[in-house]
């Protein structure tokens, strides 16, 4: 572990880390993004009380000094929005493929499934628009995630109501924590800008609002899934662990390629 750290710091100080060639040709496996350190799992749909709410979130656009985003900030937004789009794509496909087998055996779940599906579809189109607007490339694993999410949705749908809800629970736990981490990073930027007396800009302000809204909706799905008996799924531990580590892996990959 220590040797890995030493290696990483050595890499950072070496001129290779500055080489545009490397950045462009290889996915950067060695760069540590701080996102995971911030993320924590929240199991309630309420926004955490500890979340900072800088004044800059509310204030209108002023003629204050503006500074362009640093390269690290741009890189963060780039990979963050890319991962979010991939995540919402997966969510849409999971719900779409779960719906027919689930509503067939449990017709009373039809409105709930429809509600969750249409919210996810809304999130997906939000991120599609953001990607196109800010000229961010989609993940190269797009077809892979499409296939994987469809299979996951279909299989858990066939396994029954409890398994499908356990799948929703696992996915939304990861996603909620993931969005939480992003919101925290953005809020810390806002706070920093505020302290320096800089203008935050409409773009970032809107982005924080969007992310917060979407996170709250995702966590609502989590509560609903638990309410529908997610914990009663047969190999609950196994399903939960497997799906959550799958999500983590997918996030890790999508941040990079």
């Amino acid at each position: 572990m220590n040797s890995a750290k030493a290696l990483r710091s050595l890499y950072k100080s070496s001129p290779y880390s500055q080489t545009p060639l490397c950045d462009f040709l290889l996915p950067s496996f060695t760069q540590v993004t701080s996102r995971r350190d911030y993320a924590s799992i929240t199991t309630s749909s309420e926004s955490p009380k500890t979340e900072p709410a800088p004044e800059a979130l509310k204030s209108e656009t002023t003629a204050k000094r503006r500074r362009p985003l640093t390269k690290e900030q741009q890189q963060f937004l780039d990979s963050a929005l890319r991962v979010n789009q991939a995540g919402e794509l997966a969510a849409v496909l999971i719900y779409r493929h779960q719906t027919p087998p689930i509503t067939r055996s449990h017709p009373h779940l039809r409105p709930l499934m429809h509600h969750m599906y249409s919210q996810e579809a809304g999130h997906f189109s939000t991120f599609n628009a953001l990607l196109a607007k800010h000229r961010i490339r989609p993940t190269a694993m797009y077809p892979v995630w499409t296939a994987a999410a469809s299979t996951l949705g279909w299989v858990t749908g066939l396994m029954g109501r409890e398994a499908a809800m356990a799948c929703t629970e696992a996915v939304e736990t990861e996603i909620g924590g993931h969005y939480n981490g992003q919101v925290r990073v953005l809020l810390s930027w806002l706070k920093e800008m505020e302290e320096k007396g800089e203008e935050v800009g409409e773009e970032l302000r809107e982005l924080v609002d969007t992310l917060k809204r979407i996170r709250d909706e995702e966590l609502e799905h989590l509560d609903e899934a638990v309410g529908e008996g997610a914990k009663e799924a047969r190999p609950y531990e196994l399903l939960n662990r497997a799906i959550r580590s799958g999500c983590k892996g997918a996030i890790w990959i999508s941040e990079r390629v």
Binding site: T19, P20, F24, R66, L77, R135, I136, E202, E203
Partner: peptide, 26 residues
């Protein structure tokens, strides 16, 4: 290593990442 910057300064800053509408590109 100087071969790595054989192209004058235009590296990644030329807009491969998140494109902001509120700031001009350097």
């Amino acid at each position: 290593y100087s071969s790595s910057n054989f192209v004058p300064s235009c590296g990644l800053s030329c807009g491969r990442f998140y494109h902001s509408y509120e700031h001009d590109r350097p």
